[in-house]
């Protein structure tokens, strides 16, 4: 199992005196197998980010456990084989794309000769060869997102965690991200991503899970769900979150 989440509970304590705590994730259980492209869906505030934060070791779970490749996420080594692309571009603006990739390669202890090859390959993949010597601060949003994708792939990860990978990208940028996800899938890598683009999820994902108010509502293969509910993924999602269409006037 690549990702295993067991009875995960995430609670946020109230900040002020007497404020009650908020449960962000309620007893979540999830298993993601090798080679799957898994879509993690839910409306804003559903608990997607909290779950991802636990998986990435940013936050401690209130209860339950999460494992990456069988290693508890509390251990930093659990993150050795993963790549992570955050929703927004959070990179050192004073570094160039090349320097950023070299820095992350150093953290993964990738040998120097291999780093050179890997950096060349990734800059070509995300089409940033001509801008490699420019500071990231001078890049457009699309370019910064591409640097993000390159840094997520620096260690040739077996699992890629993508948080809203196409948000804020133009159609060309979205297409590029989709192509890369497809390419990773063909290479047998596992991709776990959250997205609001349900059409995109339907095209790319093998399996999806829909989470609402911290609880898992639906999980399964995309084609099975579509068959079972006799409608498309977007409609399933809207039914689960309790959306009622306005009455015709």
């Amino acid at each position: 199992m690549v990702i295993e989440i067991r009875n995960l509970i995430v609670e946020y304590k109230g900040r002020g005196f007497g404020q009650s705590s908020t449960v962000a994730v309620k007893d979540l259980n999830l298993k993601i197998r090798e080679g799957e492209v898994f879509g993690f869906l839910g409306p804003n505030g559903a608990g997607k980010t909290s779950t991802m934060q636990v998986l990435l070791g940013f936050r401690e779970a209130t209860a339950g456990d999460a494992f990456l490749f069988g290693v508890n996420v509390r251990e930093p080594i659990a993150r050795q084989r993963i790549g992570y692309l955050p929703e927004m571009t959070y990179y050192y603006k004073f570094l160039t794309a090349e320097e950023l990739l070299r820095f992350y390669a150093k953290i993964f202890r990738i040998p120097r000769a291999e780093t050179v090859k890997r950096v060349e390959f990734l800059l070509k993949l995300v089409e940033l060869e001509s801008a490699r010597k420019r500071p990231i601060g001078s890049y457009s949003k699309g370019m910064q997102q591409r640097v993000g994708l390159a840094q997520a792939l620096i260690n040739n990860p077996d699992l890629l965690i993508l948080d809203e990978p196409t948000s804020g990208l133009d159609p060309l940028g979205r297409m590029k991200v989709r192509e890369i996800i497809q390419r990773l899938k063909n290479e047998g890598k596992t991709v776990f991503f959250s997205s609001h683009e349900l059409g995109e999820v339907e095209t790319v994902c093998d399996r999806v899970a829909i989470i609402h108010q911290g609880a898992l509502k639906v999980e399964g293969r995309v084609d099975d769900l579509v068959r079972r509910y006799q409608t498309n993924l977007e409609q399933i999602f809207l039914n689960i979150v309790g959306y009622e269409p306005p009455l015709p006037s």
């Binding site: 930093p76 659990a78 993150r79 993963i82 992570y84 953290i107 993964f108």
Partner: peptide, 14 residues
Amino acid sequence: ESRTIFPLLAKPVT
């Protein structure tokens, strides 16, 4: 503040 800590701690860094 710049949230550069997120991609950093998503690597095997304590």
